[in-house]
Write a protein that binds this DNA or RNA. Structure first.
Lengths: 202, 202
DNA sequence: GTCTATAATTAGATAGAC
DNA sequence: GTCTATCTAATTATAGAC
């Protein structure tokens, strides 16, 4: 009992958790920017001001680091939650706004990491698909309840994927530089149309 | 003049162009499958039944091989051309059908190579954007001629990008396994709506 | 034109001192 | 917990024989 314990929990505090955190943040940034294959453990360590060996000490392997870096930052699950409260009427606009607002703030962008990596790295391809399936697709399908729900949700997923690609990866103008409100204006009705518009046949 | 010259041109024939061609095909397949970073020159050489050194002999560097592998296979430019003949009425459906039919045949899929690589490799990111800009965006904007043409075409690009991602990269069902006709049914109206539907405001 | 051998570099991972 | 040193393996790339 020489100092106050800021964590409020018993045991050691201010341990290597700090380095671990810095490494994690660096890993998130680099994986997001260069994907899995394009990011080296050495680069992560350098960015974090730590030693490469530390990375392996904490996360065992590059894969482990990748998995840990993809843990959803707090706030993302609740953001997803906010999409689903309020029913189906404005869900298109809400979905676009939530998506873009969260992906625009650089810290909460594991999806960008994933999409960047999904093209060259099988593991992240699975992670991406699983996350989308579990958190978005499945919930929307049950929410719709119609026979063509699967197709409708797939169409919406294409909107989301395309928008994310255009704004964050391929950077197609004017999508990349547009304001959040513009994007909601453009894509909200489109997304809404996918879910509650005229039946897409078959 | 010991043998007939199948190429019909003077000079040597049946030279290293055969190896070059095999290497090029192998490179296209592997770049498409694993992206730039995930493809090794050795793997390309092995796939082509050639020596790694040959690859460097013909293409100088891995970058050079990549650039050469992205040369549009014959038929793709004319396919793009066919989208634009016939006016604006059915252009959505024509665009979706042409896109999917060409990308489904594995040999004519440099776009898949590009999108797979665009996420981790800056060079391919530029190649992808330039190609889309020159061959699709610019022509569509002039074809539309309206003030909001840029936005409309951007919306269409998102459809194309999202559809390609969902079918070929992330493999979202039922998009990935759908027939060409289904995709035209689902995305044709959506694409048409982007170009000639109600104004997207602003 | 084709291949063998190998140089040069880089990345992932481990051992062990402090 | 942290760092230095190092190992091993893979990769890009070159030199040179045939």
């Amino acid at each position: 009992m020489t100092e106050p314990n800021p964590s409020g929990r018993p045991g050691r505090w201010r341990s290597g958790a700090e380095s671990r955190q810095r490494i994690l943040e660096a890993a998130r940034a680099l994986f997001r920017e260069h994907g899995y294959g394009g990011t080296t453990v050495r680069a992560v360590a350098a960015e974090a001001g730590a030693d490469p060996a530390m990375v392996f000490y904490f996360f065992g392997t590059k894969q482990g680091l990748f998995g840990a870096a993809l843990e959803m930052p707090e706030g993302v699950p609740t953001a997803i939650e906010s999409i689903f409260v309020g029913g189906l009427d404005d869900i298109g606009a809400r979905m676009v706004r939530t998506l873009v607002e969260n992906l625009d703030t650089s810290d909460r962008a594991p999806f960008v990491t994933l999409t960047r990596s999904a093209l060259t790295h099988d593991e992240s391809e699975n992670l991406l698909r699983q996350y989308i399936d579990r958190e978005i697709t499945a919930r929307l399908v049950t929410l719709l309840g119609t026979p063509d729900a699967a197709v409708r949700v797939a169409l919406l997923n294409v909107q989301v994927l395309g928008l994310a690609m255009a704004r964050y990866i391929v950077r197609i103008e004017p999508i990349a530089s547009a304001s959040v409100d513009d994007l909601v204006t453009w894509f909200g009705p489109l997304a809404q149309h996918c879910l509650t518009g005229p039946a897409p046949s078959r």
